[in-house]
């Protein structure tokens, strides 16, 4: 492997670029072709400078072996830049529909409410992915009234989430039959798709700072909170406050789903990790006390 040359326009050597892209695809599902070279090179160079990596080998070692996974997450975030995508880290949605929700509704009468909150929803891909996963894969979806809440601190991305218009890149992880079922093309644009009105109307979008107690008080009795790849941008005390807010917002036995590189045990002792076949979630104990 080589480092970036002094000529910053040269970017990564082709072999290293391919190794990096394979690694990113394997770990995150993000796919970058040769056509995205300039985009990728610039962001990798910026991250290497930020962490003081001597060369791309040094940086790849950090990406592969850093225990916290924080740098991988930071790289992914600058690669996606408020441009998340449908079915990102899908195994967590699989966990929701294959195991967690069945546990949530155990003992509840049909017709009860189930509340799911996408916290830090950005432009809405996560919330809509949850909706599609529920409709497609949760066998008890018609037995309950399911509320989907989605929030972000950024009003601009919320407007985009409510509009529900996405470009090809956001939809790359979505199977074709689901795109055909839940989206329609926008006008004559070749790669702009809008999610169907029924789904747009089923999600309650709101602007929320998750560390503000007054704003979070509107969320109570939530059964599952998705807060993925957001808390890595908080400092220790901010993470701790957010975890405490989630604890308040959750119903007993409710779950928090964090990003794959995040761990609740480093933020709060209020939750119990639960290992399901598809993913690890963090549960609020029924009595409020982690053993």
């Amino acid at each position: 492997m080589e480092s970036f040359s002094d000529d910053s326009d040269a970017g990564l050597p082709p072999a290293d670029y391919a190794i990096l892209c394979d690694f990113l695809r394997e770990r995150t599902g993000l796919s970058f072709t040769e056509a995205k070279r300039y985009f990728v090179d610039r962001r990798v160079a910026a991250r290497m400078a930020a962490v003081g990596a001597r060369d791309i080998r040094d940086y790849m070692n950090l990406l592969r072996f850093q225990a916290s996974g924080e740098e991988l997450q930071r790289l992914v975030n600058v690669m996606t830049v408020n441009e998340t995508y449908f079915f990102r880290e899908k195994y967590q949605f699989d966990c929701l529909v294959n195991a967690a929700l069945d546990e949530v509704v155990r003992g509840r009468p049909p017709g009860s409410r189930v509340r799911i909150w996408s916290a830090g929803c950005s432009t809405g891909e996560e919330a809509y992915s949850i909706a599609i996963m529920l409709l497609e894969h949760w066998r008890r979806v018609d037995d309950f009234e399911i509320e989907l809440h989605a929030s972000d601190i950024d009003s601009t991305v919320l407007e985009r989430a409510q509009a529900g218009i996405y470009e090809e890149r956001s939809l790359q992880g979505l199977p074709a039959h689901l795109r055909a079922k839940y989206f329609q093309k926008v006008g004559s644009a070749p790669d702009r798709w809008q999610i169907m009105e029924e789904l747009r109307d089923s999600i309650e979008f709101s602007r929320v700072n998750i560390t503000d107690p007054q704003q979070v008080r509107a969320f109570r009795g939530i059964d599952v909170i998705f807060c993925r790849n957001l808390l890595i941008y908080f400092d220790d005390i901010g993470r701790r406050e957010a975890a405490s807010m989630f604890h308040d917002a959750l119903a007993p036995n409710g779950f928090v789903c964090l990003g794959h590189s995040e761990s609740m045990s480093r933020m709060s002792s209020l939750f119990v990790p639960r290992r399901f076949p598809d993913a690890i979630l963090y549960q609020k104990p029924a009595g409020g006390t982690a053993p």
């Binding site: 409410r113 529920l134 979806v141 309950f144 399911i146 509320e147 789904l199 109570r220």
Partner: peptide, 17 residues
């Protein structure tokens, strides 16, 4: 049933007034 819009300005029993 399935997906429903959240009720505005309502609280669950667990929510403090």
């Amino acid at each position: 049933m399935a997906l429903v819009k959240a009720k505005k300005n309502t609280t669950t029993p667990s929510e403090p007034g």
